Amino acid sequence: MMSLYGKYAMGILFSFVLLAAVMLYSFPLIYCITGIKGLTSAYLFYSRIILWVVLALVFLYNLFIEKNSFLLWKEKQYSVMFYLKAVIILYLICAFGGSFLNFIIQVFTHENVSRKLVRIASLLKNNYFLIVSICLTAGIVEELLMRGYIQPRIEKIYNNPYPGIFISAVLFGILHSTYGTLGQVLVPFFIGTVFAVFYKKYSNIKILIICHFMYDFVSMMIMNFIDIKHLSAF
């Protein structure tokens, strides 16, 4: 029989392959099911549903194969004030750190804004239902999988917290590579590292979900009111 660590390794691979497949092949899958062609608001909505399906499949793998708690690290409880301070501090670190990193990338590479991101910004214009659904999906699905599921299992396999932090952050960055720019890989890697360090220290996935939602929501609302072509920080 496969050892528990072997099951963890298979679960990590299973999760990442599913997420990568969604990023790379959701266009033809959604077209086959719905007939929708190209990057449209309907496509964005259905692609979020697929991400929830991925989360459900990983939950089932955990339930029937691993037969262990989905969150290996027990959730620690904190006061409401701690939640508020943690979310605000994490948001500021990610926002200012990400903007500075993008600035450095712009200085040395003169990289253009992601065309895909510009197209998505146009589709999100005043579509608040879609904005909220995208932000909720990113906050819940990505945090439960990348931090809640993958990070602790990598740490268990290596018996070391640093591979869990680093590898989960690298995978998080890679999953954003479909935007086609260096900034859209390095900034998520930076944010993934910050979130992973926080999760290791405080073991509270709910704070990360809230912060991830808030980061994406604020970014999308800014894009909703300002021409993204003038916002190199994105």
Score class of each variant (00 low, 15 high):
Y83Q: 02
N127M: 10
Y128I: 14
Y8P: 12
I209M: 14
M221V: 14
Y215L: 13
V132Q: 03
S122M: 10
G183H: 09
S79Q: 12
Y128H: 09
K125I: 07
S219R: 01
F166W: 06
E75A: 00
K201I: 08
V17S: 04
Y128A: 09
I49A: 12
R119N: 13
S203Q: 15
V87M: 05
G35H: 05
L18Y: 00
R153F: 01
M146T: 14
V53D: 10
M2E: 15
I131C: 04
Q106E: 13
R119K: 10
Y46K: 00
I209T: 06
K74L: 05
R147A: 09
L51T: 15
S3L: 05
F45N: 01
N68W: 04
C211D: 10
S26G: 07
L175T: 09
R153S: 03
L145S: 14
S168N: 04
K116H: 03
V218W: 06
Q106H: 09
Y202L: 03
A20H: 01
F59L: 13
S232D: 08
V118P: 06
L18I: 12
S133R: 00
K74R: 09
V22C: 10
Y202W: 10
Y199L: 07
F225K: 14
I50V: 15
Y43K: 09
V118Y: 02
Q77M: 01
L51H: 08
E75H: 00
S177F: 06
G6L: 04
L44R: 00
M10Y: 05
V187F: 03
C94I: 13
A121E: 05
L90S: 00
I33W: 11
V107R: 11
V80G: 04
L90N: 07
N68R: 11
S219W: 01
K37P: 03
I165T: 04
V218D: 07
Y199E: 12
E143C: 05
I33P: 10
L24T: 14
P161T: 05
V132D: 06
I207T: 11
A56N: 02
I226Y: 05
G180A: 09
R115T: 14
H230A: 11
F45T: 14
R48W: 02
I140D: 04
L117A: 08
S177Q: 04
S177T: 03
I165D: 04
Y149A: 06
L24G: 02
S168I: 11
S203R: 14
P163F: 08
A21T: 14
K229G: 13
S232T: 14
L60Q: 15
L24Y: 12
I167T: 03
F166D: 00
K7E: 12
Y199I: 06
F103M: 12
L29H: 02
F96S: 10
P152H: 01
F96K: 06
W52H: 09
F172P: 15
A42L: 15
W52L: 13
